[in-house]
């Protein structure tokens, strides 16, 4: 069975209302802009998929990518560590108006919750956030004289990932620090959808260099000249 999609529109066609969507990237590095905008275009044309929960480190910047999803009105909730950016207006306005929900998660806890979700570990203990507002209501336990907070796994219906090279079996490499959350998210979603700058035949990636093994990847679409979110924002504000 081929994992290759003929277009970004086809790749995201299974995403439905109310789904939890993990989106790779840290700031602009690793944001899968073409997959995101294919989803926005469908929402604008058909009204679906709406009421999405989006998991990302941030909550959008300017008016592209996740910020454009928020402006379009298709995001009901953000799960993130840092909903601020150089231009956070899209999220800030909706949040202060009570039109979007926020689950604030410390960055390392967010990464580990996603890792746990992909690894079949329902909960774990971390020192992070002990004694703070973020830990309110969560179980606490003592190990070797220190206090730790219980956190639960985080899983998704779909992950949208930007890769550098993919082979047709779904093995992936990434570009520099655009890797960030993507290898974790690829493991934690029921369906992982990848846009890759280059699609190669099996064997085209040295097995020693594979970062995400193909078992975690369901759909691949080649986007050979992908937009970079930060570069786009800088173009717009010139």
């Amino acid at each position: 069975m081929s994992k290759i999609s003929p277009s970004v529109e086809d790749a995201v066609s299974g995403i439905q209302d109310g789904m939890v969507v993990m989106i790779g990237g840290f700031g602009g590095a690793g944001a899968p802009i073409e997959l995101i905008h294919a989803l926005i275009d469908r929402y604008k044309a058909t009204g679906s998929p709406g009421s999405l929960t989006v998991v990302n480190n941030n909550a959008g910047n300017g008016a592209v990518g996740i910020a454009a999803m928020i402006y379009a009105g298709m995001v009901a909730k953000m799960v993130c560590s840092f909903p601020r950016s150089s231009d956070p207006k899209a999220f800030t306005e909706k949040y202060l108006a009570g039109e979007i929900e926020l689950e604030l998660v410390p960055q390392g806890t967010l990464a580990e919750r996603i890792r746990a979700g992909g690894a079949g570990i329902p909960a774990f203990y971390t020192p992070t956030s002990y004694g703070t507002q973020v830990a309110e209501g969560k179980p606490v336990a003592e190990f070797e004289g220190r206090h730790y907070v219980q956190e639960r796994w985080l899983k998704a219906d779909v992950a949208l990932i930007k890769a550098e090279v993919a082979d047709s079996k779904g093995n992936l490499t990434y570009h520099k620090a655009a890797r960030n959350f993507s290898p974790l998210m690829a493991t934690a979603a029921k369906t992982t959808i990848v846009q890759a700058r280059q699609l190669v035949d099996p064997g085209g990636i040295d097995p020693e260099h594979v970062i995400t093994p193909g078992i975690f990847v369901d759909r691949i679409v080649e986007v050979s000249d992908p937009k970079q979110e930060e570069a786009l924002l800088r173009e717009e504000t010139k």
Partner: peptide, 19 residues
């Protein structure tokens, strides 16, 4: 956080202070 009234954002600070 400077308290209520702003958009809360924590990033990696809560992790960095442990470890």
């Amino acid at each position: 956080s400077t308290g209520p009234g702003s958009v809360p954002a924590v990033g990696g600070a809560m992790d960095l202070v442990h470890g």
